[in-house]
Design a protein around this nucleic acid. Sequence first.
DNA 1: CTGTTAGCGCATTCAG
DNA 2: CTGAATGCGCTAACAG
Lengths: 367, 367
Amino acid sequence: MEGQLPETTGTQPGTPVGSAGRALQLGRRPTMRDVAAVAGVSLKTVSRVVNGEPGVSSTLGRRVRDAIDELDFRPNIGARSLRRAGGRTATVGLLLEDVSNPFSSTLQRAVEDVAIPRGVMVFTASLDEDPQRERELTRAFSARRADGLIIAPASDDQSYLESEVRAGTAIVCIDRQARRLAVDSVLTTNVDGSKAGVRHLIEQGHRRIAFLGDRHDITTAQQRYEGYLQALAEAGLPVDTGLVLSDLTSQALAQAAAVQLLEQPDPPTALFTAQNLVTIGVARALRHLKRERRVAVVGFDDFPLADLLDPGITVVAQDPTAIGRLAATVLFDRIGGNDSPPTTHVVPTRLIPRGSGEIGPQKNLTA
Amino acid sequence: MEGQLPETTGTQPGTPVGSAGRALQLGRRPTMRDVAAVAGVSLKTVSRVVNGEPGVSSTLGRRVRDAIDELDFRPNIGARSLRRAGGRTATVGLLLEDVSNPFSSTLQRAVEDVAIPRGVMVFTASLDEDPQRERELTRAFSARRADGLIIAPASDDQSYLESEVRAGTAIVCIDRQARRLAVDSVLTTNVDGSKAGVRHLIEQGHRRIAFLGDRHDITTAQQRYEGYLQALAEAGLPVDTGLVLSDLTSQALAQAAAVQLLEQPDPPTALFTAQNLVTIGVARALRHLKRERRVAVVGFDDFPLADLLDPGITVVAQDPTAIGRLAATVLFDRIGGNDSPPTTHVVPTRLIPRGSGEIGPQKNLTA
DNA sequence: CTGTTAGCGCATTCAG
DNA sequence: CTGAATGCGCTAACAG
């Protein structure tokens, strides 16, 4: 059978050059049939070798492997999943708020670290708090037959995903609870974390503590506000709505709001910021006002270099790595067939004192 | 051949419940045949509607669309690409050094912003400077028939990708030039940027300028070192190899190296750091030594909050957004059929003075 | 305008 | 241990 293709170039056993042997036409990928032809076996034998199935003699196995190397054959996973029972594609989709935000990118890395060792590839996309984008992208991932989806929801209603769930797609929501859809969620302890952060400020003696948050229509923002309210209530402190600012959707807005807040008569002596971009904007404002050592700040969600600022920013740190790892683990568990009732998993926060949150109440310095 | 996927939008106005009409068996997705059966037309007519092909009466079109909504049908892109001429999957792969690094994640976001509007989804993965991982992941993406690959190479030889290129996969290398493979590259002006940064320090009067870099086997690190050498040479300054530290592969290592460097007799008066994690480690070291206002620092590659440190860190900023956008544009151009000779595109750096780089040479303060 | 036939690359079922 | 036939979901090339 060796003489089938006498034009075989002198591939001496010692030249691992490989792959340049039998050139296929440009733009066409070698298929199992090509491999079978080169190895002089049937297509099915190639399939067995490729999938590590038993029942192939070592001689034929070797011939097939050589042919695969020579042609640089790659099995077409799309075609495979079309025929295979279960139709798994070994891909999952990850929908984040914005991959360029450190919270999201750390989480992404954690998901990747669970997926890749299992041979699963990850589609990633950013939602930018846009509900329509959430629908379009889940649809696009679904069209590619992702086995599972990890979603940080931008919309407040995931019922449109019911048909995906019914079709067998595993879904895990992160950061925000799934709404109107019975799937697993992995969440941060927003209320408790926020409460602990505000309580920390109260313990330093503050009584006028401002709340600065991002979009108030987001569940997490509401929960963090709830924690703020609870901490004040437990300490018997009144809520001054003049000290509550929401919808600070950018660093610049947060910065401007903080300046305005601190320049009014009888300003707060401490600020609780409910999101990392808000925290950074506020840090900028304090720096400009040269009051970073006179006004206390505790921020929700850690960020790189928070410890290197002067003073360091005290934060209620989330654990995006833990969230991503847990979400991915739960997802693969579901893909693996676990069909117990959906669960909400919770990842605790941690208060990290760094200086800014340990500043006591200072005299009013407004001009 | 665009990657456009003219999918129909679901959910009739008025019935947000949706899709519960004709229940299919659990775990099975509706196919075009199911849609055809419900609509009472042939499979091909459904195909026409789904792909927006002309030649369908409005009556039938409507019936088909209703059936699609009722069943919540999603075309199977894998199956489609199997049959379609060109076999495009409307997916691309993005291989980065580490998605949790701000340089990578910003670049990722830029790629996404070019891909998503075209209906193309993005696989992402981190390489961690591991050449074998590079090979395994390109292989995995290839098995999923990605139309194109954007790679920040971890290995120094991409010739193993030749068969992919021959098979029609578009490839663009970023950050580091492709080696032994004729494909497009999108690079930063490492030598010139680095040279400008060091020259900036020389202009402040420094004559003893240290170089701190990460893994020296990486091309970009070598180029940045080359820029350092050129700047010194042009100023007629000698190279003191005692001031050249490489292979600082972590923040901690960089920090320790900087401390050691600055505590030796006759320490450098200025530091040029060739990578962002090195820069941050060095900033930490200076903070600990309380010498952040006495030792000048210019870092290669910007990072978030560099401006908020005290003093702000002067950097030679790369433009990851421009790199990502350009790489994606070139990639889609290739996927679109452009087969002109491979080109190396270059994205310039920009020196951003923020304080740390404008410190003049100070007296030796070692104990 | 609509439908039929064939086959993409592969795994499954069943026969040797 | 090996292989031939069948069809996954879909589109291309052709009929009507």
